[in-house]
Simulated assay, not measured.
Amino acid sequence: MNIPNILTSIRIFMIPVLVVIYYLPWEGRYHACAAIFALAAITDWLDGYLARKLDQSTPFGAFFDPVADKLMVSIALVLLVASYANPLLTLASAVIVGREIVISALREWMAEMGKRASVAVSYIGKLKTAMQMVAIFILLGSRPDTFYAYIGEGVLIIAALLTLWSMYVYLKAAWPELKSQETDKS
């Protein structure tokens, strides 16, 4: 175990802590959950930075880092959808989670064909991630039906639109391979 892998493991262990605190009958839970999510986002950036800087990339980290990210975001969105009961927030969350499933499957499939670089993380993907992290942070830290919650919902909708755009970019890059496989089997 190295420092980046420890940070990834901590992020995975933070998920049940986030869920438990979110449901506590305690007024401070909103700020505590936002802080936990922010800490998770920081460790996400830090573990990648340290793995590259210290040359400590490992198969464990390569596998679990994206898993930890997707689990934290998905679980946070599920908590928010249950609390907010807002159709737009639900749709935006479904788009974000659905895109993660599609792109993860696409990357795995492209990797099997030795073409993973075709669907490497793009600038729009990084922007999408930043927007969704900010939105989730705001939403976790706010009571539903407050001014800040409405801001968070707006940012999440923007993140969902960026999500669709980034999915289009990835699918467009992979389309020649998707199309050629379809033609080969015809």
Rank of each mutant, 00 (worst) to 15 (best):
Q181N: 14
V17K: 02
I21Y: 07
I10P: 01
A32S: 08
Y168G: 14
I36R: 09
M14W: 00
V169T: 15
S118K: 12
V67C: 09
W109Q: 11
D184H: 13
T8F: 02
V134C: 11
M131H: 07
L156K: 06
E27P: 00
H31N: 10
N2D: 08
G154A: 13
A34L: 09
A94E: 08
L24W: 13
V169K: 12
V134Y: 01
M131F: 15
M113T: 02
F137Q: 04
A174L: 11
M110I: 02
V73N: 05
N86Q: 06
A62H: 04
S74G: 15
A120I: 05
P144T: 07
D145V: 02
T8P: 10
T183N: 04
A174I: 10
A135K: 11
S186D: 13
E100H: 06
M167Y: 04
S186Y: 09
S74Q: 02
P144A: 09
L54E: 09
V102Y: 06
S83K: 15
A130K: 06
A41G: 15
Y123N: 12
Y22D: 14
W175Y: 15
Y168M: 13
I138V: 14
V102C: 08
E108P: 00
I103Y: 03
M110Q: 10
Y22V: 00
W45H: 05
I157P: 08
K179N: 12
Q56G: 04
W165D: 07
T8D: 11
E27C: 00
Y168P: 11
I103H: 01
A38S: 13
E153P: 00
K70Y: 01
Y30R: 13
V102D: 00
I42D: 01
M167C: 14
I12K: 05
V102P: 00
Y84R: 07
